Simulated scan of single mutants.
Amino acid sequence: MARINWLHVSDLRMGSGQSTMLFHPDVRDGLERDLRQLHAEAGPWDALILTGNLTENGLPREFERVDAFLDSMLAYLAELGSTPVVLAVPGGQDASWPRSDELATAWRDPAARALLRAPRGGSPHAGRPFWEGLASAFEPFSEWQRRRCPERWAGPVPLVPGDFVHVIEKDGCRLGVLGLNSAYAHFGASDHAGFLDVDTRFAR
């Protein structure tokens, strides 16, 4: 029976002093031992799914460290017999949030939030400055995603940075993967309770 398998990884947090632990020989040996055991039980893997907080501060140099780690990890997975596609959504740590509270203020006002979430239609969206600010905050991630992940699905363009749809096909099986950035309303270190959101409209 045909199967589609994936490996899920989260919170690499490349960028802090602690992230160097993933490159330490002892830690690396332990990681490879665990991957080898998992691969024997659940491989080969068709997708490597990364779900947020790849970095600490969303800086380009931190994504370079993510690249170095992934290149090494993918090379090892290839030795095990897996050549997975890389799929990723960002976390709150993967954005370079602006110092201004303007985005958070706009999102926390119910009337303003309803306007920001309104359908765009064919005319310029009333919340354009807001969404442009978000796009700027997530641009290092978006640039990395364009480089490392499959080309975007040929459907409507997602409004939220990092959102994607991808279909994995193998031996007559098809698996749709919907990636949603649930961290785009984090806006830095504020209290996020009741204000987080996902936008699935592009995938309908």
Rank of each mutant, 00 (worst) to 15 (best):
S123R: 15
P129G: 07
G176D: 02
F164M: 07
M1L: 09
A126H: 05
A183S: 15
N53H: 12
E62R: 06
R128I: 07
L31Q: 13
G58A: 12
G179Y: 04
S182D: 00
E139S: 15
L134A: 00
F141P: 05
R28K: 13
L159W: 15
F164L: 06
S82G: 05
Q18P: 06
W107M: 00
F195W: 13
I49F: 06
P140D: 14
D71R: 13
S190W: 09
D46F: 00
Q37E: 13
P90M: 07
G176F: 02
R204K: 10
F141A: 07
R99L: 14
R204L: 11
R3V: 13
A95L: 03
E151M: 08
Y184K: 01
L50Y: 09
M1E: 14
G194D: 09
A203G: 07
I4C: 00
F187L: 06
A95R: 01
M1N: 10
L178N: 00
G43A: 08
R146L: 05
P161A: 09
S96N: 11
G58W: 09
G91L: 10
N5P: 00
Y76C: 02
A40H: 14
R117P: 02
L134V: 10
A104C: 08
P110Y: 10
A118D: 05
L115V: 11
R204C: 10
F23D: 15
L115K: 15
Q145C: 04
A154N: 14
G122Q: 15
L175I: 12
G30N: 13
E143F: 08
A95K: 00
D67E: 13
V66L: 09
R65K: 14
S82D: 06
V66N: 04
R99Q: 10
A114H: 12
R148V: 10
M21Y: 09
V89Y: 01
A112W: 10
R201S: 15
H166L: 03
R128V: 08
A118I: 08
S142V: 14
T20F: 14
A193P: 01
K170N: 06
A88Y: 05
H186P: 01
E62C: 05
L48F: 03
